[in-house]
């Protein structure tokens, strides 16, 4: 059987809100390492990878590796019934066809349990190689969200270019064009407010803004976001989940016809 107890249950609620519109059904993999998920959107343009390490849970028991197929919209409906301060426990039996979500209020005066049917989902697991990226930009997550939102009111695609001057986000549409340049800025009070540009080589890639905007639904998970780019690889947009792991989005670039 498996049983995970997450004191900061709101993390799981935030993860679901970040991915449920991108991915419909997914297999959650449970092992002694942690609770993870890898899934592509229906058009195979974006891939989501989630890892919540076992050490981040107050209690984590997983007797054997288990794959749980869930409809994310249904899972989100269940998790919305948990209060933001609730402790969430996930339980399932080996070979069973249900998962139980238990919500405990902080004062322990309200305990709810919700059972959800599991699904058989055939999904392709992709090997994601460890890569050295040509450029990595770390910036405040709220700033990145604002840029994606602003640019999508003007164009459908964004060109992200990293040079020694900084990172430039450009778009063009029927009404005109826009360029937003963010320079490295490490002289801030809090590290999460910094913009840090690690450039080994300049890189310039084009992406669909629709997906970028979808990824920014993960903004409540982390103060900062990192964008890893190489000319021959998908973009990686990573939100670190404090003390537990990460939520990563991979986005295939637009390429020359």
């Amino acid at each position: 059987m498996l049983e995970f107890r997450l004191v900061q249950g709101s993390l799981l609620k935030k993860v679901m809100e970040a991915i449920k519109d991108l991915v419909t059904d997914a297999n959650f993999e449970c092992s002694s390492t942690g609770f993870s998920l890898q899934a592509m959107d229906s058009s195979h343009v974006a891939l989501v990878a989630l890892l919540l390490r076992s050490e981040g849970f107050e209690h984590y028991r997983c007797d054997r590796n288990l794959s749980m197929g869930m409809n994310l919209n249904n899972m989100s409906k269940m998790l919305k019934c948990a209060g933001n301060d609730d402790i969430i426990t996930i339980k399932a039996d080996d070979g069973g066809d249900i998962v139980t979500f238990m919500f405990e209020s902080p004062s322990q005066d309200k305990i709810s349990d919700f059972e959800m049917k599991l699904m058989d989902i055939s999904s392709e697991q992709l090997g994601i190689p460890e890569s050295e990226y040509q450029s990595i930009v770390r910036m405040p997550a709220a700033e990145f969200q604002r840029i994606c939102k602003d640019l999508s009111s003007i164009g459908d695609t964004v060109i992200i270019s990293v040079t020694k001057e900084g990172v430039k986000f450009s778009t063009r549409g029927d009404i005109g064009s826009a360029n937003i340049v963010c320079r490295q800025n490490t002289s801030v009070d809090k590290p999460e407010e910094a913009t840090v540009i690690e450039m080994k080589e300049p890189v310039s890639l084009t992406f669909a803004l629709r997906y970028m905007n979808s990824f920014t639904k993960a903004t409540p998970l982390s103060n900062s976001v990192s964008l890893s780019m190489s000319s021959d690889l998908p973009l990686v947009v990573e939100y670190k989940i404090a003390d537990m792991g990460y939520l990563r989005f991979y986005l295939a670039p637009k390429i020359e016809d």
Binding site: M40, S43, H44, V45, A46, L47, E124, Q125, L126, G127, I128, P129, D156, T157, T206, A208, D232, L233, P234, Y250, A252, P253, K254, I255, E256, D257
Partner: peptide, 14 residues
Amino acid sequence: DGKQSTITRFFSKV
């Protein structure tokens, strides 16, 4: 704007 590529062009099945 170019053609949209897919993730499977870059990462292969395991």
